[in-house]
Amino acid sequence: MSDPELHWLLYGGAIGLIVIGAAGIVMGKHLFRIILALAIAEAGANLMLVVAGLRPDAVAPIITGGMIPEQMVDPVPQAMVLTAIVIGVGIQALVLSLAIRVYKAYGTLDMREIRLKMAADIDAEAGVDDEVSQEGPAGERPLELPDAVTSGGPGQ
């Protein structure tokens, strides 16, 4: 396989991983799958950084017998990726512990159920009756202004 083809294959793979991860994060319906999508996107970003320093004919930047620096790949992207991997692990651990808390609080990791339960919790805290729709009219439209409007009733 020629060099440009290999490069485009690797770049395509890295970009594909990033896009799959990003799509999974925005379209995910389950919290754990969203975390996995985050890990996939991270892997893609790391792969892209490593491929940016790749030369097919070069060796790893480690001096062993007879290897001269001209034959080595750029060490800076590799050091960057080392940092990125470690920080990624920290982020994943933090996200997982937050997910554990969510599961403890609501008993589910399904985003739709979590949203409904959170909205119900917020309504309960604010003292809003969750049977009442917040967008629709509160009742029949009065034909003439009742006294309650002028004296600051519930319609205000």
Partner: peptide, 20 residues
């Protein structure tokens, strides 16, 4: 972004200096 990279180029200035 990937299309604008110089694919398979020699290390950049910083990388080259560090390697040397």
């Amino acid at each position: 972004i990937a299309a604008r990279f110089d694919l398979g180029a020699a290390p950049m200035l910083v990388g080259d200096a560090i390697l040397q």
